[in-house]
């Protein structure tokens, strides 16, 4: 504990770096999944290609990707962009599959009704399909968020791991407390990110809560869920 107070500046600085480096891929993953997921939902052929391609990229171990990206992007090995791009690739890989599933799960009756009452394709997407896919998108985004925050620490081996620095430094100095503090702060960031996403979901999708509780009530009343 004493070590934490003595090195508070370091820990806070690394935490901020960790937040920055992990927030970026999460946001990129969310934005990219909307068009990519929609295309995968809409066209069977591109879906197979997209899921295979991102499946392959997702398979590549993170440290391998951190080290390979510089020679693909032409960046220096210690450039934080490498880590951000690698984590964004994983985030997009999870989100595209999740978004395709989410758009698939929107009932066809609803979208057809929307078309029938005169929605254009674009406004139907933004006002009907996207909000209805919201809860599943959010669940996938929570997975992405927790994964990214945890995975970033491996980036410390290429100089950009946020709190992962404490793992390496603590290990080299044979000082478990430092490693422990790194783990705890990483967990705290993961939990805070998760709570922010849950909170945003509540504000932006108030109906998903009432639907969930209606679902639970139905189950309690003996209906099969």
């Amino acid at each position: 504990m004493q070590w934490l107070w003595d090195n508070l500046d370091l820990v806070v600085g690394l935490s901020l770096e960790h937040i920055q480096l992990s927030a970026l891929p999460i946001v990129i993953g969310f934005i990219a999944c909307i068009p990519l997921g929609w295309v995968a939902h809409r066209f069977r052929l591109t879906r197979a290609i997209q899921l295979t391609l991102f499946g392959i990229l997702f398979t590549i171990p993170s440290l391998a990707l951190f080290v390979t990206l510089p020679s693909v992007l032409g960046t220096k090995i210690l450039n934080p962009i490498n880590v951000v791009v690698a984590l964004a690739i994983y985030a997009v890989a999870i989100m595209v599959r999740g978004a395709a599933d989410a758009f698939d799960a929107v009932p066809g009756d609803v979208t057809r009704s929307a078309t029938a009452v005169g929605f254009s394709a674009v406004s139907r997407f933004w006002t009907v399909e996207f909000p209805l896919a919201g809860p599943v998108l959010l669940a996938n985004l929570r997975v992405v968020s927790v994964t990214t925050v945890s995975l970033l620490s491996v980036g410390a081996l290429v100089g950009n791991g946020g709190l992962g620095y404490l793992f390496i430094n603590g290990y080299q100095r044979d000082f478990p407390t430092e490693v422990m503090i790194g783990i705890v702060f990483t967990l705290v960031i993961a939990i805070v990110f998760d709570q922010i996403l849950v909170g945003l979901g509540r504000i932006l999708m108030p109906w998903s809560r009432t639907m969930a509780s209606a679902d639970r009530a139905a189950r309690r009343a003996g209906g099969s869920a």
Binding site: S150, F167, V179
Partner: peptide, 10 residues
């Protein structure tokens, strides 16, 4: 959520 890398070193 657990950073595996940190856990291993710990």
């Amino acid at each position: 959520a657990i950073p595996t890398f940190g856990l291993l070193l710990f």
